Computed example of a mutant assay.
Amino acid sequence: MLRSVALILMLWWLSACNLLTGREVAESQEDWSANKFYSEANQKLTEGNFSGAVKLYETLESRYPYGRIAQQAQLETAYAHYKNDEPASAIAAADRFIKLHPHHANVDYAYYIKGLASFNDNWGLMGFLMKGPFQQDMSERDSKMSKESFENFKELITRFPDSKYAADSRLRMAYLINSIAMNDIHAARYYMKRKAYIAAANRAQDVVKEYPPTPATEEALYIMIKAYEVLEMQDLRDDAERVMRINFPESHFLRELPEVGALPWWVFWR
């Protein structure tokens, strides 16, 4: 009984301390200008205290809702959420900025943040090239976020082709489209292993039709060749091989015919 009472008193004391601390902080900020809020928020952002930065940006906007600094705080809020691994909040903040300020000089950055936030667990361009031995391949995951990220970057370069973020967005789009294609390749490999050859051929055919410029096309054609071969669809098999020999005359798949699902020759870092 005494322990329970002591625990309740301790919890009450801690909550009271937090309440007092929060009140003291609010009182200390009463005379802050918009510039002061913005400067302090940026300092927290630099220090990596992203949640603290968000609170200050939001307080700034509530105290000084109009003007250039408030607009910039809204934009920085989206970035702080992104850096704090809160993609949904980052996208919501970016969407809000776009809705409120569609003609702002930096609205292209809001579109860029949306693309980054949905770039599947915040993997950077170097991140997908330098993965650890136990890190899952992005293409092995649900492609929904990859498609969403692709569309966000696409909207950026369509609306702002000369944006300083356009070049990086195009690089990310190129990676994303191959990742989406490889997602279908993983499914086709699975169908081959389960001897569902028609499903495998159809999935591989989708890659060839929808994503022809991607490296995934090479393995897609190989899967089609093997699936049609088992199904004794000789004409379709020969057509797939003909296309493969024209487009990938030096293909590892044509030279050695490895098992479906074997790593392509270019994956040398695994």
Rank of each mutant, 00 (worst) to 15 (best):
N106S: 12
G124D: 14
E250A: 09
K193N: 14
L231Q: 10
A220P: 05
G67N: 09
K209Y: 08
F37N: 03
S146V: 01
A26K: 06
P161K: 09
L156T: 05
K209H: 09
Q234F: 03
A80Q: 03
A110H: 01
R189K: 12
I69L: 10
D168A: 10
P264G: 08
L14W: 11
S28Q: 14
D137R: 11
E86Y: 01
E47K: 14
S139V: 03
Y191R: 09
N42W: 06
F37I: 01
Y228N: 15
W123A: 12
V25I: 15
M130V: 08
L116E: 08
N183L: 06
F268K: 15
K154A: 13
R189I: 08
Y211G: 06
N152K: 04
I246F: 05
K44P: 00
N122L: 08
Q135N: 06
D85T: 04
A73Q: 04
Y197F: 15
A6I: 04
Q205W: 06
G124V: 03
M145P: 00
W269N: 10
I180L: 07
E241Y: 03
F150T: 02
G52A: 07
N178C: 05
R245W: 10
A41H: 02
A201E: 06
Y109K: 05
L19S: 14
D95W: 00
L2R: 14
L231D: 13
V267G: 01
S15E: 09
V208Q: 06
E61Y: 05
R63F: 09
K144L: 14
L263A: 13
E232W: 02
R237Q: 15
Y190R: 13
L176W: 04
E155D: 13
V207I: 12
S179H: 10
K226R: 15
K99H: 11
P215N: 12
W13E: 10
N152V: 01
L116H: 03
A262W: 03
S139N: 10
L75V: 04
L129Q: 14
G22Q: 12
E24I: 05
L7T: 14
E140Y: 05
A201W: 04
L45C: 01
P212I: 09
F50G: 01
E155Q: 14
F50C: 05
T21F: 13
F119I: 03
Y79Q: 00
R172K: 11
Q205F: 05
N120P: 00
S146I: 03
A92P: 00
Y228I: 02
D184L: 11
H186K: 15
I113P: 01
L129F: 13
G52K: 04
N106T: 08
E40H: 08
L257D: 07
E210N: 11
N178R: 06
A34G: 06
V54H: 04
K83Y: 01
L19K: 11
S62T: 12
M233R: 14
K193M: 07
S179E: 15
A196P: 02
V230G: 04
A93Y: 00
K131S: 12
R242F: 10
P65S: 08
I185Q: 05
Y82G: 00
E218T: 04
